[in-house]
Design a protein around this nucleic acid. Structure first.
Lengths: 120, 120
DNA sequence: AGAACATATGAATATATGTTCATATGATGG
DNA sequence: CCATCATATGAACATATATTCATATGTTCT
């Protein structure tokens, strides 16, 4: 249980006790920020398509570009973001880079999102 | 099962069969867009805090502003977005508006995100 | 009716983000 | 060694978005 810190409660416009309780239970700035950053990764149509495509099979960059009908550079930039978030990994084979998923938990979240939208 | 549409496969840089299969299974533009819009709602620290705070109790606008230590206008704008996405609902009581959660499924997703980040 | 208050909203501003273009890097094959 | 190919990346640009400020709306109380 968190210790309550109510010293300043009197200054709020209304319902000081409720505000104090809620403040004590509020997620930290850092957690809120990191969680938002996490959802941001999933908050782009191109990245959603990349992740969904990779959920079935490993693909190289130019194949992903072909599948999504987009430029190689745009895909490469997005893959960089997905790599940074450790959602995809890749192996090099000569000049080609084969990408695949690297986080089953997040993929599961993505599928929940797709399902949710599908059922609207 | 989807019908494959492989007429244009030969034009791709590499691995036409794989690209064709992946294209056939690719989520639609519309679904990808809507899913991204959905995750965008959760991709902001302020909205995460609002939803997490409301997960415990109903609050009025000025209380939320006090809890998050932010301006009333900023909170009101964010609540509008959350209302538009049907993640929160409100009841009017005189001049006050009491907000609460309106989508347990999405709240569950939010909690999964918070947990995921917490376990990193 | 008028003052005070809670909330909503439009406009403006600052910041973040996705794509494109040009180019760099690094591997393969002649 | 040079040309070609797959990929990566920096800069520029356009667009989206969060907050603030000012103000509007609608309610309560005197």
């Amino acid at each position: 249980m968190k210790k309550l810190d109510c010293d300043l409660c009197e200054q709020f416009c209304e319902h000081p006790q409720i505000v104090c309780l809620a403040k004590a239970e509020l997620v930290s700035d850092d957690m809120a920020y990191k969680t938002a950053e996490f959802f941001k990764i999933l908050a782009d149509p191109t990245r959603i398509k990349i992740l969904q495509t990779l959920s079935t099979r490993e693909l190289c960059v130019c194949d992903i570009a072909a599948v999504l009908d987009m430029g190689q550079s745009a895909i490469s930039h997005q893959l960089r973001i997905l790599r940074g978030a450790r959602l995809v990994k890749y192996r090099k084979e000569g000049k080609m880079a084969w990408y695949s998923l690297d986080d089953a938990h997040v993929t599961n979240l993505l599928m929940q999102g797709l399902n949710h939208v599908g059922h609207i």
